[in-house]
Computed example of a mutant assay.
Amino acid sequence: MTSATLGEGGPEVGPGSILEVAAQVFGVPISSDALVGEERMTPEQFTGPVNWGLSGGSRRG
């Protein structure tokens, strides 16, 4: 089960909501240590600075 199951980004969706729905779905209480979080990164944050120029290799042809 993911936050996308509940609709991402809504103010009512939080760890407590996810735990409540999971408990209803699976029929047992789910503790907060069962949650896995995420951090989103932009492509630039993930790759770092990109040098779009070609490297100094020789040309073949």
Rank of each mutant, 00 (worst) to 15 (best):
S3W: 02
S17K: 00
V13N: 07
L6Y: 11
I18Q: 01
G27E: 07
G9M: 02
A34V: 10
E20R: 05
G56H: 13
S58I: 03
G56S: 15
E12P: 02
V28T: 12
P11N: 12
P49C: 12
V50N: 10
T5Y: 07
E44V: 08
V28C: 06
T2Q: 11
G48Y: 10
P11T: 14
W52M: 12
A4V: 04
P29F: 00
P49Q: 13
Q24G: 03
P15S: 15
N51P: 02
V50K: 09
G9R: 03
G56Q: 06
T5E: 13
S3A: 14
E38W: 03
S55I: 04
N51A: 07
V36A: 04
G61S: 12
S32H: 09
S55A: 11
D33T: 11
Q24S: 08
F26I: 13
T2P: 02
S58G: 09
W52E: 14
M1S: 09
Q24A: 06
E8N: 07
T42M: 10
I18M: 11
Q24D: 02
R40W: 08
G14P: 00
N51Y: 06
D33C: 05
G37K: 06
E39Y: 07
S17V: 01
E12W: 09
V21C: 08
V36E: 14
I30L: 09
S55M: 04
E44I: 07
Q45H: 04
A23M: 02
V36D: 02
L19I: 10
P43V: 15
G10Y: 11
S3P: 01
T5H: 12
T2E: 08
R60S: 10
G37R: 02
W52Q: 14
N51R: 10
W52P: 08
N51T: 03
D33I: 04
I30Y: 03
G61Q: 09
D33L: 03
G37T: 14
P49A: 15
G10E: 14
V13I: 12
Q45E: 13
P15W: 01
E38T: 00
V25S: 06
V25C: 06
R60E: 05
E44L: 13
L35V: 08
A23T: 05
E39D: 12
G61N: 07
E44W: 12
E38K: 05
L54W: 08
S58W: 05
G14M: 07
G27P: 00
A4L: 13
E39V: 15
A34I: 04
L35Q: 06
G61H: 09
I18F: 01
R60P: 00
T5S: 14
S3N: 01
P11V: 07
L6H: 03
S32P: 04
G56W: 07
A23H: 06
E12K: 15
V36R: 02
A23V: 09
A23D: 01
E44A: 14
L6G: 01
S3R: 02
F46C: 13
S55W: 08
S58P: 01
V28P: 00
E39A: 15
G14T: 11
S3H: 10
P15I: 04
